[in-house]
């Protein structure tokens, strides 16, 4: 074997193993959904015939429409608000540069290193005092101002042509009109990519909802699977079906919009 073909042999070997290991847990999830709980914890990795029973049991234990609604509602509202606030800030920072704002932007960089764990205790007391524990608002409000998304929009705004803005000014448009009617349509793909990432972030959020959302009627899918899997007598078949439902939305978005997905992920670095 020549050096080169050995190298490519190793290359295909490593990549195949990595790809297999990456995909296997997804396969395990789908197989698990068709098996009984006892089979799953015994490691059975072949398809079974318990899928329908698991679905029926999940439906009996969890108010699925309600929980799915909660997840979608929180993720969608958060995403819309986050995009509006972050794109406005990105626009504000990049178009209207000034010394004071540059300094403020530097301050944002520092705030990136504040971990959520350091905020959760005061945030909890804050929302408790406001009587907002167990509400959608308590989940949505702290998630709206996202520094990463602000960065992302500021970076993307560098590519926004200033001539367009100047022309709009000559046409007599006010600044917010320029933002809504010129900037927004031009930056469509930036918004689309950010939407995907922010949606996913909110859909998958766990720690803060775990603290805030207390009743079954308010729980999200992520909280529901966590609770099902840690129940007194967990039914892993049911858990697997619920896990599929939790994973499916982001998986579908990924496969339909792969390019935008990756663009959004890479967005804030450059």
């Amino acid at each position: 074997m020549t050096n080169r073909s050995l190298l490519s042999f190793v290359q295909y070997g490593v990549l195949s193993v990595a790809a297999f290991l990456s995909v296997f847990p997804f396969f395990w999830m789908v197989v698990g959904a068709t098996n009984t709980s006892a089979d799953i914890i015994k490691g059975k990795a072949t398809f079974g015939s318990n899928l329908w029973t698991n679905i029926v049991n999940l439906n009996a234990q969890v108010d699925l429409p309600r929980v799915l609604f909660n997840s979608f509602y929180i993720a969608i509202i958060s995403t819309i608000l986050t995009l509006v606030v972050a794109s406005a800030a990105g626009y504000g920072f990049e178009i209207f540069r000034s010394k004071a704002r540059e300094r403020l932007f530097g301050g944002l960089l520092l705030m990136l290193s504040i971990p959520f764990a350091a905020l959760m205790v005061p945030l909890f007391i804050m929302f408790a005092n406001a009587g907002l524990i167990n509400t959608y608002s308590a989940i949505i409000a702290p998630s709206v101002a996202n520094i990463f998304v602000i960065f992302y929009f500021r970076q993307a705004t560098k590519a926004f042509p200033h001539e367009l803005r100047d022309a709009a000014k000559i046409d007599g448009l006010k600044e917010y009109q320029i933002f809504a009617r010129v900037y927004f349509p031009v930056m469509r793909s930036t918004y689309a990519a950010a939407t995907i990432i922010v949606f996913m972030l909110n859909w998958n959020n766990y720690l803060w909802p775990l603290i805030v959302l207390q009743t079954n009627e308010m729980k999200t899918m992520v909280l529901t699977i966590s609770s099902l899997a840690s129940a007194y007598t967990p039914d892993f078949g049911v858990v697997m079906v619920a896990t599929i439902l939790t994973t499916l939305p982001t998986l579908i978005i990924f496969f339909l919009l792969q390019r935008l997905f990756v663009q959004g992920m890479l967005g804030s670095v450059k």
Binding site: F20, S22, V23, Y206, L251, F254
Partner: peptide, 11 residues
């Protein structure tokens, strides 16, 4: 395939 895990929720 290798990127796919990054699509799942942590929980």
């Amino acid at each position: 395939a290798i990127f796919l895990p990054a699509v799942t929720s942590l929980v």
